[in-house]
Simulated assay, not measured.
Amino acid sequence: MQWTVPNILTLIRLVAAPMVALVFLLLPRPFSDWIALILFLSASLTDYLDGVLARRWGQETKFGAMMDPIADKAMVVIALAVVLGLYGTVAFGGTILFNAMVLVPVVVILFREVFVSGLREFLGEVAGTLKVTRLAKWKTFVQMVAIGLMFSFGLFDHYFGRWTEGMDGTLIQGILDGAVPDEFGLSWLYMGLIGSSFGALALLWIAAVLTLVTGADYFLKARPHLRDGG
């Protein structure tokens, strides 16, 4: 391995991937949420930087070509596992149920990643001829933003809950209904919480759709190489 800056950035991203999950075991919330968000955003930035620097400085290596997609997949898969652990269930009538709004897109994304990785492994060198499309790059970008927003929502929810802690439920509802003067900007906080949750979920679903489309495109391009005797 050559200790180039792009390779070091790739290794940092690979190490950061499991730490996104482990911080929730090592630190109490919301500190763990902050560290996980910072790690994920930093790793997402290195995903862009290592490729740009490798091409600009002529430092493209076999190690980087091998480890870069591994680090990317590790970051996305582990971050989605954390999101599923944090928001994959809801309480309803005293019963814990799976949250389909989170579970379905996460399962779709994970399935596609495993499926495409299996195709690439089977195709070997041929997989290198199937270039990454512009849509696939957008898919990755939307995935990163959606996961980052899901982590941000956890922080928003935490601080919003702290803000309203100890307040009477009737008073809170009266403020939200407009019957009581909103001296603390509670309605704006509440609308921000709802907006961030819908925004994060919407982007997660968009990422899942783009993931399916790009996965199907990759499979169609790979079909000629999967025929017996081809």
Rank of each mutant, 00 (worst) to 15 (best):
M1P: 07
M1R: 08
V5R: 11
L9A: 06
T10K: 11
I12V: 14
V15E: 05
V15I: 14
A16F: 14
A17V: 10
P18C: 01
P18F: 12
V20S: 04
V20H: 10
V20Q: 03
A21E: 00
A21H: 00
F24R: 01
L26T: 11
L27N: 07
P28L: 08
R29G: 05
R29D: 12
R29M: 14
F31L: 06
L37F: 13
F40N: 01
S42P: 02
A43N: 02
A43Y: 10
A43R: 06
A43I: 03
S44M: 01
S44I: 05
L45N: 12
L45H: 14
D47V: 12
D50W: 11
D50A: 04
R55V: 13
R56V: 08
R56K: 15
W57Y: 15
K62F: 13
F63V: 09
F63I: 13
A65K: 15
M66R: 15
M67I: 15
P69D: 01
A71K: 07
K73T: 10
A74L: 09
M75E: 08
M75P: 10
V77H: 11
V77T: 08
A79R: 05
L80C: 07
G85V: 06
L86G: 06
Y87G: 00
T89S: 13
T89E: 07
T89L: 05
F92M: 09
G93K: 03
L97E: 14
N99H: 12
V102T: 05
L103C: 03
L103E: 01
V104N: 08
P105N: 02
I109A: 06
I109T: 02
E113M: 08
V114W: 15
F115V: 04
V116W: 12
L119R: 07
L119K: 09
L119W: 15
R120W: 14
L123C: 06
G128E: 08
T129L: 13
T129F: 14
T129I: 07
V132P: 01
T133H: 07
R134K: 14
A136Q: 08
K137I: 05
K137M: 04
K137S: 04
K139N: 13
T140Q: 07
Q143L: 09
A146D: 03
I147R: 03
G148A: 09
M150A: 12
M150G: 04
F151G: 00
S152D: 11
S152L: 13
F156Y: 04
H158K: 04
G161S: 15
G161V: 00
W163M: 13
T164E: 10
E165F: 13
G166E: 06
M167P: 11
G169T: 07
T170R: 11
T170K: 10
I172W: 04
I172C: 01
P181N: 04
D182H: 12
F184H: 15
G185Y: 10
L186V: 12
Y190V: 06
G192Y: 14
L193S: 11
G195R: 07
S197Q: 07
S197V: 12
A200R: 02
L201R: 05
A207I: 00
A207M: 00
L210E: 04
T211C: 10
L212S: 04
V213I: 08
T214A: 00
A216W: 06
Y218P: 00
A222K: 10
G230I: 02
G230K: 00
G230T: 01
